[in-house]
Amino acid sequence: MNARIGNDNVVTQALGQIGNCGLFLLQVLAAIPRSLRHGRETVRQLWFTGAMSLTIIMTCGLFVGMVLELQLYHVLSMFGSTSMSGTVVAIATYRELGPVVTALLFAGRAGTAITAEIGLMRATDQIAAMELMAVDPLAYVAAPRFLAGLVAMPLLCCVFCALAVFGGHLVGVSWLGIDNGTFWSNMTATVDVWQDIVSGVIWKSLAFGAVVSLIAVFQGYTAPPTSEGVAYATTRTVVASSIAILALDFVLTAFLM
């Protein structure tokens, strides 16, 4: 499947990785209709990548909202406009922090697990065994995980944003004494459903979900079948996902805003 890359220089290797990753994406996309027979496996992966990540996503969302509100309060109090701090928390979270931080956490929490799992399946010849039993590993192993990541990311991002707003409210209203009514009315007056929630939360997190789960599955699928190879692939999942998320975030912001 993958053209072997010799000990070429770094640029050639990186380009080869990207090219292989793109080809792999096409293969996974082609395998998605076949993977629908294994719907149960997709649900199981959704459980592992999505539902099990809820705890960390919720905790982090809460604290991000709280610290953002705290910082904004001190800056905005110079201008006497602390009642706008909730608005800024909401907009900053919906447009940037929510999708990006959720995707980074998702890459660390779920992406590494996917890579390690598939890498070990490859190392222990389980994938070869599937091929021998005429079970398509792309349809049974790769595509369900990819789909699960695609579905889980927007949902996780929504939960993250909701908790961030809640955290902002907790600090701003309950602790620092901003008026509850102005907090919400400023927010509802400024946040726009299409601009902020659909093109911010939904589109960005869908794109990030696709990128992170593609990289995770690809790295696991092509990991050298050694314990060292799996470890290296897991590291690369985190590094490549983080770079891809932040770079893609800039591009998406430029296009969507």
């Binding site: 959704l46 459980w47 889980a152 927007p154 929504c158 909701a162 007056a189 726009d192």
Partner: peptide, 20 residues
Amino acid sequence: LFIVLGFAALAYLATQTSSV
């Protein structure tokens, strides 16, 4: 449950914190 929670969060964001 996870999917329901996610959509509930989305509905909350869209209806309670936005111009809707």
